[in-house]
Design a protein around this nucleic acid. Structure first.
Lengths: 184, 184
DNA sequence: TCGGGCATGTAATACGTTACATGATTCA
DNA sequence: TGAATCATGTAACGTATTACATGCCCGA
């Protein structure tokens, strides 16, 4: 009976507009992919469960392929469940960061190669800052209203900009540290 | 044959000192838990595989329980594999952040409850800044040397401080946004 | 003596990805 | 014509958590 986090991710997307499973798998890649990912193989059965629980309603339309096209719409119960979940404290922090794990072991590696890694990662994060900034600038003024459907996009992209900027700065600091190994 | 990321996490810990599986399960909670987690049920079989691959060596000592106590030590091959992995670009970013997902859906919830969530999260992150700062201050001066085993601890805790500070600031910004909903 | 920490190990379950199978439409 | 996109669905596999089972030692 318990709805997994993925279920709420789908409800959050469907709260903005009705979609098919395929469309959701695209929307989960971007923009949701910046902070939540899921594959079609996971989405498909989850939509069925949410529908069975009465949080979604589905409508079959004659589709292109061998199966009908199913459009999912959030129900009033789904909206209530989403709103209740959204204000509960999150269960756990994101706690899996491969770059930090590599950094933890970086003392065993060659400093020059380590420095190259840090610099390439810094470049990636700098680029993302630009990317996210462009997304933010494309959002309308109404997104600043906490009751507007685009508020979540504004707030999360704002987070992303700061996150990537900090990460880029840290990578640059790391590269600097790795260059003066013998000279203190 | 491919070593999963967990395997490198264990190698990174064992590069600093030999341990039993139980000790590793403790060390994976803290300090490694700040950026990588694993449960005993996962660690135990993985150690066997790393040993079979020649990246670890094990030594059985008469232990307290019904089984022998096994102490795992990293081999030269293990150290080489770790060093090589550490400088390869990470495969993927951490991309699962429940707080951001909730934020994406926050427009559906009551602003007052949402504000309470943002403020409580801000407090948690502020506290972690203090916690991490204390850890950093406890590290010796030798940790600044990129070849010292503690360099990874210094670099990652430094990341953590910036990360938590940024997150706290963002939560505070979010709380502010959620308070003026009607008055622009 | 009883709970918690040390210590190993297995099993059930959940979570998530990748690959496969099908087939229409669109566009170069 | 042939590749890409739309679109559903299943199966196999890999990854990870939780719970269980065993049993010693130590301190309250």
């Amino acid at each position: 009976m318990a709805v997994p986090t993925l279920g709420y991710a789908l409800l959050a997307l469907l709260a903005k507009q009705p979609n098919t499973a395929y469309e959701l798998s695209q929307r989960v890649r971007r923009p949701l992919g910046y902070f939540w990912t899921a594959s079609y193989g996971q989405i498909h059965p989850q939509l069925r469960e949410l529908t069975a629980a009465g949080l979604l309603s589905e409508e079959s339309v004659a589709g292109p392929g061998p199966h009908d096209k199913r459009v999912y719409t959030i129900t009033a119960a789904g909206r209530d469940a989403l709103a209740a979940w959204a204000v509960e404290p999150p269960r756990q922090e994101p706690s899996r960061d491969e770059l930090l794990l590599k950094t933890y072991a970086i003392w065993t590696a060659e400093p020059e190669q380590a420095r190259a890694l840090a610099l390439s990662q810094a470049a990636i994060h700098r680029q993302r800052v630009a990317e996210y900034t462009a997304i933010r600038d494309r959002l309308g003024r109404e997104a600043a209203d906490p009751a507007h459907p685009d508020f979540g996009s504004l707030a999360t992209v704002r987070y992303g900009i700061g996150y990537e900027r900090h990460r880029a700065q840290w990578c640059e600091w790391l590269a600097t540290q790795l260059s003066h190994r013998d000279s203190p």
